[in-house]
Design a protein around this nucleic acid. Structure first.
Length: 465
RNA sequence: GGCGACGUAGCCAAGUGGUAAGGCAAGGGUCUGCAAAACCCCCAUUCGCGGGUUCAAUUCCCGCCGUCGCCUCCA
């Protein structure tokens, strides 16, 4: 029972088979860098990060490309508004986005191409399309001849006639067909422009992705991803350009994540701009966002509001709580330890089965939480440190496939452990003397430093918050 | 108008042709100097509404209602 992935192209789950055995070429559309990134971008990044991590966990060698669209109408428009150079503006937001990816614990893409750095490749591609009759030039603009592509519309399920019917009157009169789209745009004054066979100009939106794919991966890739808002026209046009040129299937799987929904009245502007990645991460742990995202299937719309943030925060605490050490005075519990081993196996199995089913992360989390309960039960029973930490290692492994960093805090205070334990011993003596006030002071002071004490029947344990 | 999704407990959310994972919240209990955590119990005879197919549907089909996305440059 191997991995299955839902492809937008076939609208069904397909067994995952790569072009090259054991290797995955994955291209994900990144942001147009004209403004601060929002939580929707973060969602998409996390979704594809988890897909990548799971593929690697499954033994694939993944090359992950993510582009930055830095030459674009919106970038130019914004740059002109504030009077800066468009490329410089894009550069600023690219830096910012890279930082967000780090903060969100998104594995760095293998390559991060930018439109402005792929001009040669783009020009070559447009030329080739022109030679094959799929493109035509009008006054320095080059358009893709949609009517010549008999498969046009196959990804989004649209028919040309339907689309033409919807066009308004303000279409570019120079196009042969209102549905044709720009491959190359003639430069207007004040815009970034490059030399080309058609005069000075810049690439259209869709061609950059086709060109980058060809540059870094060749004619075919395994996975092409992005938000489902890109299905049309962006990905539809990418397919058209690339497949008309190569005559081969462009991408084996088209993977699209659902949109984030900010709908609920509880999260309007009045709540503040919780939508910016920046702002969110100031107040919340990246793990919280990840859990929130992974708690629903990537293709479905994601509910995002204060309620679910709270719920995710508590859930992350529960996950971390499972990493608390074993009871200081373990007993002999062979049966319980055997059972714990079985739970670990079930957890792993359930996790894989869910993830193999089109990256069903909510199902995978279900298995993880079942493992959490088993670990907590075993600890309460008093199983040995060895048995418990084996299960905890499994928990850490599975959650790390989801990109969660449960152990981070624990690791961070790791060096302080001997001192914390010293304080615990001291406090235990104070408690034996019924000096509650001092004992509580120590507990509170440690809590302020992010170290929580748990007084159990068998003694006191601690955990990092 | 065209194309496409979605509607499961108070909230978030999986899932299956044979009667509903998981998380959060609420309630009861165990433990505890107190607290927190943890553990146990409890929490949808029911999966938007109305038909149909079937021995059996939340799961398949049809219709309706509702929410949402895309329809030329938004992840």
């Amino acid at each position: 029972m191997g991995l299955k992935i839902y492809s937008t192209l076939t609208r069904s789950k397909e067994p995952f088979e790569t072009i090259e055995s054991g290797k995955v070429r994955m291209y994900v559309c990144g942001p147009t860098v004209y403004d601060k990134a929002h939580m929707g971008h973060a969602m998409s990044s996390v979704v594809f990060d988890v897909i990548r991590r799971y593929l690697e966990f499954s033994g694939y060698q993944v090359t992950h490309a993510m582009n930055y669209t830095d030459v674009d109408d919106k970038v130019i428009e914004r740059a002109n508004e504030i009077g800066v150079d468009p490329i410089a503006l894009a550069e600023k937001y690219i830096h910012e986005y890279d930082r967000h990816l780090r903060d969100l614990n998104v594995m760095p893409p293998s390559v991060k191409p930018r439109a402005s750095e792929e001009i040669d490749q783009i020009v070559q591609m447009v030329q080739a399309l022109e030679e094959k009759g799929y493109a035509y030039e009008v006054e320095g603009n080059v358009y893709f001849r949609v009517a010549k592509d008999e498969n046009y519309g196959k990804l989004s399920g649209r028919r040309l006639e339907d689309m033409r019917a919807g066009f308004r009157i303000d279409v570019d009169e120079r196009k042969e067909d209102p549905a044709d789209f720009a491959l190359w745009k003639a430069a207007k004054p004040g815009e970034p422009a490059w030399e080309s066979p058609w005069g000075k100009g810049r690439p259209g939106w869709h061609i950059e992705c086709s060109a980058m794919n060809m540059h870094y991966f060749g004619d075919q890739i395994d996975i092409h991803g992005g938000g489902n808002d890109l299905v049309f026209p962006h990905h539809e046009n990418e397919i058209a350009q690339t497949e008309c040129l190569t005559g081969k299937e462009f991408s084996r799987y088209w993977v699209h994540n659902g949109m984030m929904r900010l709908a609920g009245a509880d999260m309007s502007k009045s709540t503040g701009n919780v939508f910016d990645i920046d702002v969110f991460l100031q107040d919340h742990d990246a793990d919280v966002f990840r859990l929130l995202v992974l708690n629903s299937h990537y293709r479905n719309p994601l509910t995002f509001n204060e309620d679910v943030i709270q719920q995710a925060t508590r859930a992350v605490e529960r996950l971390r709580g499972a990493l608390r050490p074993a009871s200081p005075t373990p007993g002999k519990h062979d049966e319980a330890e055997t059972e714990l081993v079985a739970h670990v196996e079930n957890g792993r199995k359930g996790f894989r089965e869910s993830m193999d089913d089109d990256f069903n992360t909510p199902g995978a989390l279900g298995s993880i939480f079942e493992l959490v309960r088993a670990i907590n039960q075993a600890r309460d029973l008093g199983v040995s440190e060895v048995a418990l930490s084996a299960a905890q290692d499994a928990l850490l492994e599975l959650t790390s496939v989801l990109g969660l960093r449960l152990a981070e805090m624990r690791d961070r205070v790791g060096d302080a452990a001997p001192f914390i334990e010293l304080l615990i011993d001291l406090r235990t003596e104070l408690r034996e003397q019924k000096n509650w006030e001092l004992a509580d002071n120590i507990r509170q002071s440690l809590a302020d430093l992010g170290v929580l004490l748990d007084d159990g029947k068998e003694g006191t344990t601690w955990r990092a918050q």
